[in-house]
Design a binder for these strands. Structure first.
Length: 601
RNA sequence: GGUCUAGUAGCUCAGUUGGAUAGAGCAACAGCCUUCUAAGCUGUGGGUCACAGGUUCGAAUCCUGUCUAGAUCACCA
């Protein structure tokens, strides 16, 4: 991002120079604060002089004025300056901004770093579904975050690899399988005319219902609730099934394979509709035994402790945590053992530099422990394990609970969004002249755009509230608003071409400009910084809010300033050119969020 | 109880390295379609930045404590 920030660097260096010349002191660059001038003040960049008063030994206003004079004399891009209290506001001349705008027009990948010298390979693990039920709203947040972050990382010139780890084994899978055996009558997704993940999910729910009934009966017959839960025939059967699976019993394995394939097919449809994908998919059934050897070596090294019963533990009390189990007394792996193995394997397989896990914040402790363990084992990549912890998605009524049926299903939600977009556009008569295929394509883009933007504009680490009925709007700070802005510019350009108006390849630097135009150009100028920040903080929200601000400012501009101006050719050329650059940045920013922009809507 | 995260307008959320008078949208109210797309624009009202201290030229932002909410602390994954 540095290449775009050179004006800030130049200012900073000149300030250092000024301080040395005028006050004879070499100053720590840390103390030079150059920031963008707030909208309500005149100027482009502001130097905060408070930290420099110790050096100048003069009052703030005087210090600022002296530095301002020096900078104006020595930097030709500065046209004027003003001083308010301890703030030195510098104004750059129009020529600078127009030639900057021209450079944006020449560079098709403005903001993107296209040939980084030493790109890092960054693995992003996300989605990680269980194959016993369909995806829900929580997965949507995960999927959108993971996908977007991979794109943002790639935009900074690094090599982003998207990885999915499918949790396809364990007792929860057996529950669905057992219910299907008992009550399924050999039904298949084809026969039921239902997506495979939903069908299997139904059996998971059925299991739970029947299991509850059994518990109730057992409690009536005098058992305690805990005992009833442990001894209900259904749960015992499910456990037996898991044992058979681990012993590779043929019938069990083949049922497992079949039902998993149904679910995975269903997931593929959901992923495709959401517009996300993976470079590599791992299955837990293949990786769940990994890590055991590493743990055993760890015992030899004295990093882990083996207890008398044979179980293996790591002691993290010095780090302020507890002891954590790594191998059961029967020698089998637990969840974290597997993660030790997969981390090792992935860094080796991809020669990776960094591994990002997109996982909900309920697993913060788990990843804290994982990182410490890898560190203790002496892996140098331990510090490049990063848990992108995102908050829960809550409904107005509170947390989503699958057992209480308050889960918002991913497929249903997407359908609902699209049909709402459909109703809206019908009501507004927006798409009347288009064909059915085109209409449904645009409605899909808009409906999903609304959903994706709504979720991504929120800081990942925060819990968020989602009201399916009211929260998603198509007006205001939303995806459709941004899409609308883009579509408008697209049609504007089309219309200009129809009128034989030529959009220039370059704008003359002495063109007359308005403040509004300059303001938009300045906003474009910050785009690379935004992308850089987003990659640093792993937060698509930064990009989302930037794109909204840009679209909003453009919309305001659009209303007050005619763009297809017959009378003043030169001004209209600038506005047309500017509009085009803004459209391209909106498109680029939205693509980093995985949101499409329609050419019309 | 220990640890972690959050608390900003009625609601949903922004707020950059500590920087100037705290920002949007929704909802409410009042306007703007014979003009490049009104999914838009303009205006009004709405704030003890949870609370109390501290650090300093300056705190929504950093530190300490309190309160509230959530998560987590399994031979589950």
């Amino acid at each position: 991002a540095k290449q775009y920030m050179n004006i800030e660097l130049q200012l900073k260096n000149k300030v250092l120079e000024a301080l040395q010349q005028m006050y004879g002191q070499v100053v720590d660059p840390e103390n030079i604060q150059i920031q963008k001038t707030r909208k309500d003040f005149e100027g482009d960049y502001t130097l905060v002089v408070f930290p420099l008063l110790r050096i100048s030994k003069k009052p703030p206003e005087q210090t600022a004025t002296e530095i301002g004079d020096y900078l104006k004399k020595n930097i030709e891009d500065i046209s004027e300056f003003n001083v308010i209290k301890g703030f030195l506001n510098l104004t750059l001349n129009t020529c600078f901004w127009i030639s900057f705008l021209n450079s944006v027009g020449r560079n098709k990948n403005y903001g993107f770093i296209t040939n980084k010298e030493n790109p890092n390979t960054v693995l992003i693990e996300y989605s990680s579904p269980n194959t016993n039920k369909p995806l829900h709203l929580g997965h949507i947040r995960n999927n959108l975050l993971g996908y977007s972050i991979a794109k943002i990382i790639a935009s900074q010139g690094d090599n982003a690899i998207k990885v999915n780890l499918v949790n396809d084994r364990g007792i929860h899978i057996c529950k669905s399988m057992l219910a299907w055996q008992k009550w399924g009558n050999n039904i298949t997704p084809e026969k039921a005319n239902k997506k495979g993940d939903h069908l299997v999910g139904d059996f998971y729910v059925k299991f739970d219902q029947e299991y509850k009934k059994q518990i109730e009966e057992l409690v009536k017959s005098g058992l305690s609730e805990d005992d009833a839960k442990k001894n209900a025939p259904l749960i015992l059967e499910a456990q037996e099934m898991l044992r058979k699976w681990e012993a590779k019993d043929e019938a069990t394995i083949s049922l497992w394979k079949e039902m998993n394939s149904w679910v995975l097919k269903g997931f593929d449809v959901t992923y495709k509709n959401l517009g996300i994908d993976f470079d590599r998919v791992y299955f837990e059934s293949e990786t769940y035994k990994l890590g055991k050897e590493i743990v055993i070596k760890g015992i030899e090294k004295g990093v882990f402790i083996k207890r008398d019963d044979g179980s293996v533990w790591v002691d993290l009390t010095e780090e302020g945590l507890d002891q954590k189990l790594l191998l059961r007394s029967d020698g089998t792996s637990v969840y974290i053992t597997q993660d030790i193995g997969t981390a090792h394997q992935r860094f080796a397989d991809f020669n990776a530099h960094e591994l990002i896990y997109v996982v909900g914040n309920e697993q913060n402790y788990h990843f804290q422990v994982l990182k410490l363990i890898m560190h203790k084992l002496g892996y140098s990549f331990a510090e490049y394990l990063f848990h992108l912890s995102y908050g829960m998605v809550e409904l107005p009524e509170g947390k989503m609970k699958s057992r209480e049926g308050t889960v918002v299903d991913a497929d249903d939600l997407m359908d609902e969004m699209i049909s709402t977009a459909e109703e809206m556009s019908k009501e507004l008569g927006k798409l009347d002249e288009y064909g059915e295929v085109e209409k449904s394509q645009i409605n899909k883009t808009i409906g999903l755009g609304a959903l994706k933007y709504f979720i991504l504009k929120v800081d990942p680490k925060k819990n968020m509230t989602f009201d399916p009925k009211e929260s998603i709007d198509f007006n205001g700070n939303t995806g459709p608003f941004i899409q609308y802005t883009y579509a408008r510019i697209a049609s504007l350009i089309k219309k200009a071409q129809a009128r034989n108006k030529i959009i220039p390849n370059e704008i003359n630097t002495d063109v007359a400009t308005t403040n509004k135009e300059l303001q938009l150009i300045k906003q474009i100028h910050t785009y690379p910084t935004i992308l850089f920040d987003a990659a640093e903080t792993l937060s698509p929200a930064v990009v989302a809010n930037f794109v909204y601000d840009l679209a909003k400012d453009y919309n305001q501009f659009y209303h007050d300033h005619p763009i297809l101006n017959e009378e003043n050719e030169q001004v209209s050329a600038l506005r047309l050119y500017l509009s085009q650059q803004i459209a391209s940045i909106i498109k680029s920013g939205m693509s980093l969020l995985g949101i499409d922009v329609p050419e019309r809507m």
